[in-house]
Computed example of a mutant assay.
Amino acid sequence: MLNSGDCDGVEPEIVVLLATFNGARWIPQQVASILDQQGVGVRIIAADDGSTDGTLEWLRELASREPRLTVLEDPTPTGSSAANFYRLLRSVDTGNALVAFADQDDIWMPGKLRRHAALLARGFDGVSSSVTSFTATGKRTLVRKDYPQRPRDYLLESPGPGSTFLLTPRLAQLTRELLSRPDAVAPEVDFHDSLIYAIARSHGWSWHIDGESSVDYRQHDDNVMGSNTGLAAALSRLKLIRSHWLRNHAVLLTRVAIQSAPPSDRPELERILHLLTATGFRSRLVLARMCGQMRRRPRDQRIIALLVAIGVW
């Protein structure tokens, strides 16, 4: 069980943004694990994206008797989990509360929010953590995310699933602003966890990746993105690499970072953007040599550098 941490005797207020779509099988367990969090004042704001399995009806029924749950009524489906989270961020005034994100099918560990709020109180603007993946057969695997951070790791990887995130009010507001500006690139990013981490780190704010698992991360066929472990996950990532999806994703994150970064850091990000979009051999070699700055795990650094150099990535 997670250590409860130290919040100086004051219960922090936390708004949990919950995005749902056809999750009726799992959502009661997920919501219970959020509402059962101790040592924090927690509220859930949920937005359903057009479920047909009774998820929205279940949320409405619970909200009628649970004042800590509010259902955002918007009949227009966004079409993706990330877009639903972006809608929540833009639509909900979270004020001075800390902000967390919840998938519909995970289970939060007791003490998750209090522990991460205590970590934020040390001066970080974002906290995430390792997770424990689990399957219907009972297999459990720790998915470590706390490898040492690198200067530009936010361009190629997230610091853990978004369901482990906790943000300060100013990071939530900065993300909201970048999602809403007229020339916004942020809404094009397919994963909210990658986006928020890139915004925080490129802006010069600090992030802590907690090595202690805070979420039981359910693995099933409907996962938007699984835990990235095992042969099947490796083959799936290789397919994305060969299609250049990961490179294009990095291009988007770099463009977001340019909008988020202080002026002094933008020229270097513009150079990285040029390298990411160039196709020449010399550009690939320069980018390959930078991979040590862009991935946290040494093994991943070597693999990505090789794939970049030979033109597969």
Rank of each mutant, 00 (worst) to 15 (best):
residue 285 L to W: 07
residue 145 K to N: 06
residue 176 R to E: 02
residue 33 S to W: 01
residue 159 P to N: 00
residue 78 T to N: 12
residue 23 G to P: 09
residue 21 F to P: 11
residue 262 P to H: 09
residue 148 P to K: 00
residue 120 L to T: 11
residue 24 A to W: 14
residue 229 T to D: 07
residue 129 S to Q: 02
residue 132 T to W: 10
residue 28 P to S: 07
residue 279 T to F: 02
residue 184 A to N: 08
residue 253 L to F: 14
residue 142 L to Y: 01
residue 127 V to I: 12
residue 2 L to F: 05
residue 134 F to D: 11
residue 66 E to Q: 13
residue 286 V to D: 00
residue 138 G to S: 05
residue 64 S to H: 14
residue 155 L to S: 02
residue 261 A to R: 02
residue 70 T to L: 09
residue 245 W to C: 09
residue 203 H to A: 15
residue 247 R to G: 10
residue 244 H to C: 09
residue 272 I to H: 03
residue 199 I to H: 08
residue 84 N to C: 14
residue 281 F to N: 09
residue 225 M to I: 11
residue 126 G to H: 09
residue 310 I to V: 15
residue 150 R to L: 04
residue 250 A to Q: 06
residue 97 A to D: 10
residue 293 Q to L: 13
residue 122 R to W: 03
residue 254 T to D: 03
residue 32 A to D: 15
residue 252 L to H: 12
residue 88 L to Y: 00
residue 27 I to V: 15
residue 68 R to H: 13
residue 103 D to F: 01
residue 123 G to F: 02
residue 5 G to C: 04
residue 36 D to H: 04
residue 162 G to S: 02
residue 50 G to K: 04
residue 21 F to I: 13
residue 173 Q to E: 10
residue 227 S to W: 11
residue 269 L to C: 09
residue 141 T to A: 05
residue 126 G to P: 11
residue 68 R to M: 04
residue 263 P to E: 06
residue 313 W to Q: 05
residue 59 L to P: 01
residue 134 F to E: 09
residue 101 F to E: 02
residue 290 M to F: 07
residue 95 G to N: 01
residue 260 S to D: 04
residue 263 P to H: 05
residue 91 S to Y: 01
residue 105 D to E: 07
residue 277 T to L: 02
residue 121 A to D: 07
residue 49 D to C: 08
residue 70 T to C: 03
residue 75 P to Y: 07
residue 244 H to I: 06
residue 126 G to K: 07
residue 250 A to W: 06
residue 64 S to N: 10
residue 104 Q to R: 11
residue 243 S to N: 14
residue 226 G to A: 05
residue 263 P to C: 03
residue 172 A to E: 03
residue 133 S to G: 12
residue 49 D to V: 07
residue 211 G to L: 10
residue 104 Q to V: 00
residue 295 R to P: 08
residue 237 R to M: 15
residue 112 K to R: 09
residue 268 E to Q: 07
residue 106 D to R: 00
residue 209 I to W: 10
residue 143 V to Y: 06
residue 303 I to T: 13
residue 251 V to C: 07
residue 75 P to L: 03
residue 80 S to V: 07
residue 151 P to E: 02
residue 253 L to N: 01
residue 28 P to E: 01
residue 178 L to N: 10
residue 51 S to K: 03
residue 111 G to Y: 03
residue 62 L to D: 01
residue 236 S to I: 00
residue 143 V to L: 06
residue 66 E to I: 00
residue 176 R to I: 10
residue 9 G to Q: 10
residue 179 L to A: 02
residue 123 G to V: 04
residue 187 P to T: 05
residue 162 G to N: 13
residue 72 L to C: 06
residue 296 R to K: 11
residue 172 A to P: 14
residue 196 I to M: 13
residue 35 L to E: 08
residue 119 L to E: 12
residue 59 L to E: 05
residue 168 T to V: 10
residue 128 S to Y: 04
residue 58 W to E: 10
residue 68 R to F: 06
residue 21 F to N: 08
residue 206 S to G: 12
residue 86 Y to T: 10
residue 45 I to Y: 11
residue 240 L to V: 13
residue 109 M to S: 04
